[in-house]
């Protein structure tokens, strides 16, 4: 009866719709975010993650409205990220009903921002998103701007720094695997797991249920995030949980 490992469907939101780019190319429409959130809640998702991938400020207001609607009827933790740059952004998302906010590029630009945000809002709601790309067999670097911009920062050192700054959780995405459906980079996940004692979410590359189990058993992740396997009806969250349970992983019955 250990702490359950979490399954977190991720909703990339652009212009008020859930979208999913496959290999960064065609963006497929996956529906209305409030309806999608309702469906995953009913299937027993342990948490939901909304990532704002839009560029315009008008559309950012759309996501705040989506979070408000979801928070009024879905009573599981909601993490919201994408373009979080200031304490004012965080305050607006928390007031809309987000429980945690995910900080990515802004943390790289100004590491003190994470410390300031944790101090002001509490570590429990500060998730630092780490987009890492493998540069050597056992070395990963942080990339920003959707994986296009290198920073020269070592991903494992960065994870330690963010833990020390007061992050409550890390969201670790392999930019090599994201969108490829070839499974998590579990060497990366294991290196993160060994470096910090914060909980972390593994992300990037899930193509099937076995990948979710591997992220937990091989990658030592506390939670696994996936998008396309759920969005297009290939699998339900319930099926994913049944698979993890059969692999001996503690999960929550939530459906």
């Amino acid at each position: 009866m250990a702490l359950a490992r979490r399954i977190i469907p991720c909703l990339d939101v652009d212009g008020g719709r859930v979208v999913k780019g496959v290999r960064f190319l065609d963006i497929r429409d996956a529906g209305d975010p409030v309806e999608v959130a309702r469906r995953y809640d009913a299937q027993g998702a342990d948490e939901l993650c909304f990532l704002d991938i839009t560029a315009s400020s008008d559309d950012r207001r759309t996501l705040v409205h989506v979070v408000e609607q979801v928070a009024a009827e879905v009573f599981i933790p909601l993490t919201v990220g994408g373009g979080v740059r200031s304490c004012e952004d965080i305050r607006r998302l928390l007031n809309a009903g987000a429980d945690k906010v995910s900080i990515n590029t802004a943390a790289v630009r100004d590491p003190d921002f994470v410390a300031e945000a944790a101090e002001r809002f509490g570590s429990q709601c500060i998730v630092v998103a780490i987009d890492a790309k493998r540069v050597e067999p056992q070395r990963w670097e942080i990339f920003t701007h959707g994986g296009r911009r290198p920073t020269g920062l070592d991903a494992i050192d960065w994870a330690r720094r963010m833990a020390a700054a007061g992050a409550g959780e890390l969201l670790v995405t392999s930019m090599d695997r994201d969108g490829t459906r070839t499974g998590f980079d579990n060497a990366l996940n294991r290196a993160i797991a060994d470096a910090v004692d914060l909980p972390f979410i593994a992300s990037g590359g899930v193509g099937g249920l076995a990948d979710l189990a591997a992220g937990i058993l091989e990658g030592n992740a506390d939670a696994v995030l996936a998008a396309s396997i759920f969005h297009f009806g290939e699998h339900t969250v319930g099926e994913a949980k049944a698979h993890l349970r059969a692999a001996g992983i503690p999960v929550r019955d939530g459906a």
């Binding site: 250990a2 702490l3 359950a4 979490r6 342990d46 409550g168 004692d197 914060l198 909980p199 972390f200």
Partner: peptide
């Protein structure tokens, strides 16, 4: 306390205690 096994013989607990527990 850091480093405690989550369950007997299990991996070390992560802090904060975050997620669904019984």
């Amino acid at each position: 306390p850091a480093g405690l096994p989550e369950t007997p013989g299990g991996r070390a607990i992560r802090i904060p205690h975050m997620g669904w527990n019984t």
